[in-house]
Design a protein around this nucleic acid. Structure first.
Length: 263
DNA sequence: CGCATTTCCTGGTAGC
DNA sequence: TGCTACCAGGAAATGC
């Protein structure tokens, strides 16, 4: 999403902001965006960060069903940015969010006090030095089960429900294993699995089960490569045991009860 | 402090 | 066919 939007947004000026949703913690300070130029398009975990010319930062999170497009949507548009033209035609950025789990807000650059998850976010798993020793050290500090700990974004950035299940399966780790019980070898295997599953999904343009679309409106192709998520009741590709679905911290979790033993 | 639980929200769908 | 009930989950708020 970041890569797709960058060439379109970089350098444009925000001329007008139209908020089609009640202002609140998910839609904050947007009136300050008007007049500012978009200086960059960065990403931390699942947050998009757009530094602006007057020292502010536009923060966008797609939540479950958020979509961004230059073209208008038929329904559920929450925010609309009118942008300066490059060439003749007008430009715009539309934010659609059917289920309203997304965010679209302005903060002073680097002030994430209203975004605790972003403020405490772990390292980027695909950055050059994803410090795997550091990953193990972080896991050692938490007594929480590894699955919800991954979802907290604290040990590593950007891993959500689907990729957590896929990576835990690849590393043969039971999702309820306390994070601090993972050996250095298991932590290493998990770090590698996270990198591999994310690389593979990026190469396939992401995972579309129902809602996700690329910035060009296309579906991602990674759903076909999922080994466990959405495959409960089907045989494990490694051992043939039927995959099991349980709830962990209220999230659907699919795993192989034979391959993935608690450490 | 940190972990666990609850909340927000709407379209799709199962069940009758 | 049409209605109701329930399910999906990222991150924040609340509870312990």
């Amino acid at each position: 999403m970041r890569r797709g939007l960058e060439p379109y947004l970089l350098g444009r000026r925000i001329l007008e902001v139209k908020l089609h949703a009640p202002a609140g913690p998910k839609y904050l300070n947007l009136e300050r965006a008007a007049g500012q130029q978009i200086l960059g398009l960065e990403r931390r975990g699942k947050f998009l960060l757009l530094p602006l010319s007057a020292g502010d930062e536009l923060i966008i999170h797609l939540g479950m069903t958020g979509r961004l497009s230059a073209e208008p949507f038929a329904r559920h548009t929450r925010v609309e940015l009118r942008l300066s033209a490059r060439g003749a035609e007008d430009a715009a950025l539309h934010f659609q969010d059917v289920r309203r789990f997304g965010r679209f807000l302005l903060v002073a650059e680097g002030d994430y006090s209203k975004l605790p998850t972003l403020a405490q976010m772990g390292p980027e798993p695909l950055a050059k030095p994803f410090d795997e020793g550091g990953f193990y050290a972080r896991l050692q500090k938490s007594s929480a089960p590894i699955k919800p700990y991954l979802l907290s974004q604290r040990p590593v950035a950007g891993v959500g429900n689907i990729y957590a299940d896929e990576a835990l399966w690849a590393a043969c780790i039971h999702p309820l294993t306390p994070a601090k019980h993972l050996s250095k070898q298991k932590a290493q295997a998990l770090a590698t699995a996270i990198r591999e599953v994310l690389h593979a999904s990026l190469a396939a343009q992401g995972t579309t089960l129902r809602d996700y679309r690329t910035v060009n409106g296309e579906v991602g192709g990674f759903a076909a490569a999922l080994q466990v998520y959405s495959h409960a009741g089907e045989p494990c590709a490694r051992c043939g045991t039927l995959l099991k679905r349980i709830l962990i911290a209220g999230r659907g979790t699919v795993f192989c009860p034979r391959c993935q033993k608690k450490a």
